[in-house]
């Protein structure tokens, strides 16, 4: 095992050096998805989660990313050592919805934009917080839509879908939302 680890290390060394981020980003700004990941963390905290697991079964709080993943490591970095409602967090990524049906938060990537209606229908009022960052998501029945306006992240909430899904969103979050859809 150790031998293999050393081999791996040698093989990976040149690449790990390369993973030092390039100086292509102005230092006073942050990557869009780093900030979006932090938003997701906050959303998770401002929602009252009813227990989703029966005794002994699946103790994790699961966040799913459906479709092509835009976060890089941002989600993993954000949720390392964090707990939501007392549970450790795991990040799952998949191309099809079936693998992610047990998630508590489902981030739907822009690559899935064209089939968003199908996805939302398939979720069928499960207690899943759906988040996406393409326009029209909240109107289409998604719960939280992230936007970037003037380089700052904003969000919209579809309160009706949230209620249907049995999610209780704190009033603080609702107050900060750019728009709350209630019908």
């Amino acid at each position: 095992m150790r031998c293999r680890a050393i081999c791996f290390t040698i093989l990976a060394l040149p690449f790990s050096l390369a993973s030092v981020p390039a100086e292509n980003m102005p230092s006073d700004r942050l990557g869009e998805y780093d900030v979006k990941a932090a938003f997701i963390y906050n959303f998770a905290r401002f929602i009252e989660w009813t227990p989703w697991h029966k005794n002994g079964e699946n103790p994790f709080f699961s966040i799913g990313v459906l479709g092509e993943e835009p976060f890089g490591n941002a989600l993993d970095d954000t949720f390392t050592d964090k707990t939501i409602a007392g549970s450790h967090v795991r990040i799952m990524r998949a191309g099809n919805l079936q693998a992610l049906m047990d998630c508590q938060i489902l981030f739907i990537s822009q690559s899935e934009q064209s089939r968003v209606d199908k996805i939302l229908n398939a979720l069928n009022d499960r207690q899943i917080l759906t988040i996406a960052d393409f326009p029209g998501f909240a109107e289409a029945g998604g719960i939280i839509e992230l936007r970037v306006e003037e380089n700052r992240v904003r969000f919209l909430i579809n309160q009706k879908t949230a209620v249907d899904a049995g999610l209780k969103i704190s009033s603080k979050l609702l107050n900060l939302a750019q728009k709350v859809i209630t019908r």
């Binding site: 700004r29 942050l30 998805y33 938003f39 490591n73 992240v153």
Partner: peptide, 22 residues
Amino acid sequence: VHPLHRDLTEMSLEELMQIEVV
């Protein structure tokens, strides 16, 4: 990996909403 200059998870939502993103 993007450099996280600050731990974003320690910021409030209000603060996060003020951050400029690339």
